Simulated assay, not measured.
Amino acid sequence: MTAPVRVLVCDDQELIRTGIATIVDAQPDLEVVGECGDGCTAVDLAVRLRPDVVVMDVRMPVLDGIEATRRLAGAGVTQPTKILVVTTFNLDEYVYEALRAGASGFLLKDAPPAQLLHGIRTVATGAALLAPEVTRQLVGRYAARIRPVKGTPDDVPLTPRELEVLRLIADGLSNSEIAATLVISHETVKTYVSRILTKLQLRDRVQAVVYAYRQGLVA
């Protein structure tokens, strides 16, 4: 039997934290190994317990979720922790900074339980998770903060087709949606995505979205 995915739940609101933990623990393939209500404790527990996935709130006391994410999954971390950010889009202005800090994806707090569980399982496999319905709004709203002062699309070492795929990724499209848009096979899209990540030395689709906006590839 495959060992269950070990999950650490971090949220300063006890009701939400308990709700998430209850939903997760009810799944035979998932296991809650710890809970906490602030970012500092989240870092300590993650280092000590080594969960497969940390479900991380953004706004927490002592240490916020962004800095906690950076310490657990940011550049230079030897054994980065997989982090799924859960947030309230209308309130958390810096959620995208959490993705830049190394989070593997994000979901809204009002997402249905099935979507939360899917998100945890997806991130646990090493894949990235973006909520397509809010990706464009979220990134577009804060694009100015992450776009560099210099550099042009001409600096991007991708073919025209790869650039096209990257722009669609940045728009929050899934591989299947990209395949339908470009009228190519799903496997071909996967090949393009793999090439893009390799050429740009990016970890996952989340980083690809950040890269696209920083390079001014998406309006």
Rank of each mutant, 00 (worst) to 15 (best):
A21K: 00
L30N: 04
R141P: 02
R147I: 06
T88P: 01
T181D: 12
V47I: 13
D92R: 03
Y211D: 04
A127R: 09
T81C: 14
A75Q: 10
T135L: 10
L99T: 01
I16H: 04
S185K: 03
L197T: 02
R71W: 07
Y142F: 12
V193E: 01
E31S: 11
T18N: 13
G39P: 07
Y94K: 13
D29G: 11
Q115W: 08
Y94S: 12
R100I: 13
Q215V: 09
Q201E: 13
L197A: 05
R147Y: 05
E31A: 15
R100A: 15
A3L: 11
D29V: 11
V5R: 01
F106T: 03
T135W: 08
P148L: 14
C10E: 06
E187T: 14
R59W: 08
Q27V: 05
V32R: 00
T125S: 11
P148V: 08
S104K: 08
F89L: 15
I169G: 02
E133Q: 11
L45K: 06
L138E: 00
V218M: 11
V7I: 12
E93I: 08
V5E: 02
T135S: 12
R214C: 12
V58P: 01
L99P: 04
L91I: 09
Y213V: 09
Q13E: 08
N90V: 13
L8I: 05
K150S: 15
V139C: 15
R195F: 06
V209N: 03
T18G: 09
R50M: 13
P4L: 05
D155I: 09
I184E: 06
R161T: 13
L45H: 02
L30W: 07
K150L: 14
V7R: 00
I146M: 13
Y213L: 10
D92T: 10
T125E: 14
S174F: 04
L99C: 06
E35C: 14
A111P: 06
T2M: 13
T18F: 10
G76N: 09
K190I: 14
T2R: 15
P113G: 01
R17T: 05
T188N: 12
T88S: 15
L173W: 02
F106Q: 02
V47C: 09
L200K: 06
T181V: 09
G65S: 08
D92H: 06
Q137C: 10
T88Q: 13
L63T: 08
V134C: 13
